[in-house]
């Protein structure tokens, strides 16, 4: 099992193998992503019961929580890719960092915007310096830093490794930010207001939330893979296999 995994990892490091295998996956993953996301959101919007305190405004949570968790997971994935890019100098890892960053930042922005919109009817104000919202804002800044650095360096391999290093440092930082912001929040805000209390969430709300979460992850994966495939083609544009690949479709 371990040897098989190791072999597969090395194979995935080859841009050509990555391009071919993800080409076979995508026709399955795309419909799955659309179905899951659609099912989760429709269930959450129309079929889940309203919250006894917040009424129907809580239905925003079916986007807010999945977007926030996918944004966080995406940043961690970027950090792992960054480590691989730094230590083994794997080309595919550099490509993955570039593919993850834009949609990860979008998800963080979605989490912030939906959080603010949810806050207006619930807390009576668009923005509260709540620990989770603040951490998410810092996460968005971290994403923007990686994108800015990536864009500032012209050589793609150098840009990939620089962004990788920043992502690794950022992941360590994310953990510290989370605890420091919680500490800071407990200091400045007597009553802690929670966005969600997952543990007390009844199953008829939790199920659509989990489905929607799976949908966001799958959509994230699809977009990352397609962007990574475009980047593979572009970086390997002089290779024969790319030329052949593209002439076949004509």
């Amino acid at each position: 099992m371990w040897n098989w995994l190791k072999k597969w990892y090395h194979k995935l490091g080859s841009p050509r193998y990555f391009y071919e295998i993800t080409g076979a996956w995508l026709p399955w993953v795309w419909p799955l992503a659309v179905l899951t996301l659609g099912a989760g959101l429709v269930w959450g919007l129309a079929f889940a019961p309203p919250d006894y305190q917040q009424g129907n405004s809580y239905r925003i949570i079916f986007i807010h929580v999945p977007a926030a968790s996918a944004a966080l997971l995406g940043y961690v994935a970027m950090g792992v890719a960054g480590l691989v890019a730094l230590v083994w100098r794997m080309k595919m890892a550099e490509i993955m960092i570039k593919a993850i960053a834009p949609f990860g930042a979008t998800l963080a922005a979605i989490a912030l915007i939906t959080g603010a919109i949810w806050g207006k009817p619930t807390w009576g104000t668009w923005w509260v310096w709540d620990a989770r919202l603040t951490s998410m804002l810092i996460l968005l800044f971290l994403y923007l830093g990686v994108i800015a650095l990536q864009n500032a360096i012209t050589d793609p391999r150098q840009a990939g490794r620089a962004a990788g290093l920043l992502a690794v440092v950022g992941v360590i930082n994310v953990v510290i930010v989370k605890y420091s912001v919680q500490w800071w929040n407990s200091l400045h805000q007597g009553s802690t207001i929670r966005m969600t209390e997952e543990s007390t969430m009844p199953p008829e709300m939790l199920t659509p939330l989990l489905i929607s979460m799976a949908g966001f992850y799958l959509l994230f994966a699809c977009i990352v893979l397609v962007n990574a495939r475009s980047e593979v083609l572009w970086r390997e544009r002089r290779a024969n296999w790319v030329r052949r690949e593209l002439s076949n479709v004509l």
Binding site: I138, F141, L142, L144, G145, A148, L149, A152, L166, V169, G170, N173, I176, V177, Y179, S180, V181, W183, W184
Partner: peptide
């Protein structure tokens, strides 16, 4: 400006504590 974009988010925990 680029340096500020990269570094300021990393400074958050130190500032808070």
């Amino acid at each position: 400006m680029l340096l500020a974009l990269l570094v300021l988010p990393l400074y958050v925990p130190v500032l808070i504590f």
